[in-house]
Amino acid sequence: MKKNRRWALGAFLIVFAMPTVSHAMHIMEGFLPKGWCVFWAALTLPFVVLGFRSIKKIIEEKPKLKVLLAMVGAFAFVLSALKIPSVTGSCSHPTGVGLGAILFGPTAMAVVGLIVLLFQAILLAHGGLTTLGANAFSMAVVGPLVAYGVYKLAKKAKAPKGVQVFLAASLGNLMTYVVTSFQLAIAFPAEVGGFTASLVKFMGIFALTQVPLAISEGILTVIVYNAIKAYGNQELKDLNALRGEA
């Protein structure tokens, strides 16, 4: 109990010390200089192209996997609509791209993530069209890549399946926000301390807000993965065969 109080107090102090700092998931419309918008969009584009190819290949070779593909897309849709309160006294939302990255590989999720971001940018004024490239890079490119990489590593280390999935999804989530802080810091270096000061500022906030959400995303991904494993074992085998893994 005492420990909890101290923890809450620490979180309180952070909230009051930096009352105006953001924990928003996506970079807002118009809030990234044009050069950076183009830069991040260009970096994202090849992944999206590869993603379209990968999805096309999956659907052509194993049409039955469409159900599973729709499901991982829907999972990203649901999770990125859930704004969850966090220890810093503000809300943020998970990304939901880790599950798809584990099952379909990282590039397929570049497409799915982009669709989610487009939906939110156009209909919800959440994120933005000009910042789409930057947001897609963090959520649809880096997040899935990290999730996939962590999954492979944990698999190699022979961790239990649940741990593999949990680590992949939660670290993918966390890294998405680290990249967002990086993008903001590099575009808006502080007058005193420059890039590093901005990075420390954005990162400290983002990481702290995101930690419980990353854990939540990890757990939710494990639950859905368990369901897929229980009822869609044939589909999982098809996927592994398709991606050349026994």
Partner: peptide, 15 residues
């Protein structure tokens, strides 16, 4: 634990 926090969706704060 954070009774006084506003739990805003922080887009505005980011600006």
């Amino acid at each position: 634990f954070l009774k006084d926090a506003e739990f805003e969706g922080a887009d505005g704060q980011a600006e």
